[in-house]
Design a protein around this nucleic acid. Structure first.
Lengths: 208, 208
DNA sequence: CCTATTCTGGACTTTGTAGTCCAACCAGGA
DNA sequence: TCCTGGTTGGACTACAAAGTCCAGAATAGG
């Protein structure tokens, strides 16, 4: 796979990544083989290694990046404009629905077990995803503050971190139990806490 | 492995499970082989299959149960007596420390990817663990309520669910990033919300 | 002691799968 | 037209790891 890829080559490579992502979602990374990918994408062994010379790990990494990109995209445009309470609730609904539909395979979580979390490439992908996700949430909190719906003293970053943790945990519990109750509870609880901080501040303001 | 195991047999079996657990923690389930277990425990292939006739999956399941049992044990006695704010903070510290020490391999999480979450046995283990964990937390919330530190209207089960989700997510983020900040944020945020509910109720009581 | 049963060692078989190799194909530029 | 380099097909190899088998040692029970 020297310097350049022709349009045809690029198309094939993309087909492989997308097909591999499908296979991984369906069978789980532990049971997905290169032959499955080959069959699904209508390619041959040599193509797989032509576009991913370092073999399976490199392909898995590409799929991980592909999936990571989708995670945030799937939450748009809601995640991008969390400037009112309604917007927050709509976003919550989108998140819950997305993961309920996803069923019981976490494309990213499983990927990293196979590749190894410590692999620099893998780690970078997930760290960057978490960073962006948390940044979007923090920005949403600040938007509430800017709109005067939340006191400025409220710690936006800690709120975003806690919310993100709740989402991750809710999803992983759902993967094991099949129930989205925990995901809902985490989101509802988090948003509720912010609303309470808002009304408490109102009371305080009124009193002051 | 007919009906009974002699004392010697039981010891060997236990040695295998514990050794396998160590190996899995160190290498990760994706890379641990029966030969690793064999070497670590000083046993032979035939013993492995003597005590676990259904092979690797059965062994992994036994390890999963073993690890699941430890999760709650490691939080005792703190998890069992969450009847004051101080007790909650002490418990939080224990949880954070336990997972910081555990490093970057989640014995349970990874196990289920290999076995397959949908396997009835695997699912049962994790569902039961979550159930007990959440029940303990809910009991702690009710203990606060019984002590008059928290209004009775507070939803203990939702609180427990949200806290549990936060823990799970905090841990899984820590596994990927190496930072325990999210775990701390989730716990602190959750406990803080309860305290606020308490003080808000105080204000309300005073006002009423 | 004798015998039945459990336990253990280790060589062997089987299988699934990643990765290799080379010949052939296609497309665009000189 | 020919040539070059990216692209493709598919058979082949290499190997690791699960699982099998049987002979022989240890042990419990009578």
């Amino acid at each position: 796979m020297p310097g350049v890829l022709t349009p045809k080559g690029r198309a094939t490579r993309a087909r492989i990544v997308e097909g591999a992502a499908e296979v991984l979602r369906e069978k789980g990374v532990a049971f997905a083989t290169l032959d499955d990918v080959r069959a699904r994408t209508g390619t041959s062994k040599s193509q797989l290694f032509h576009y991913f010379p370092d073999g399976k790990d490199q392909l898995l990494l590409a799929v991980a990046q592909y999936e990571a990109d989708r995670v945030l995209d799937d939450q748009q445009p809601y995640l991008g404009c969390l400037d009112s309470w309604d917007a927050w609730y709509r976003w919550r609904d989108v998140v819950v629905r997305r993961y309920e539909e996803q069923g019981d395979h976490c494309p990213l979580g499983s990927l990293f077990l196979q590749i190894g979390r410590s692999t620099p490439g893998a780690r970078a992908i997930v760290v960057e995803l978490m960073r962006q996700w948390q940044a979007s949430l923090a920005q949403g909190v600040r938007a509430l503050q800017a709109g005067g719906r939340l006191p400025g003293s409220f710690d936006a970053d800690q709120a975003a971190a806690a919310l993100l943790a709740g989402i991750q945990g809710g999803v992983s519990i759902m993967l094991s139990t099949g129930e989205s109750a925990h995901l809902r509870a985490a989101l509802d609880w988090g948003i509720a806490r912010m609303r309470e901080a808002a009304t408490a501040a109102d009371r305080g303001d009124r009193r002051a």
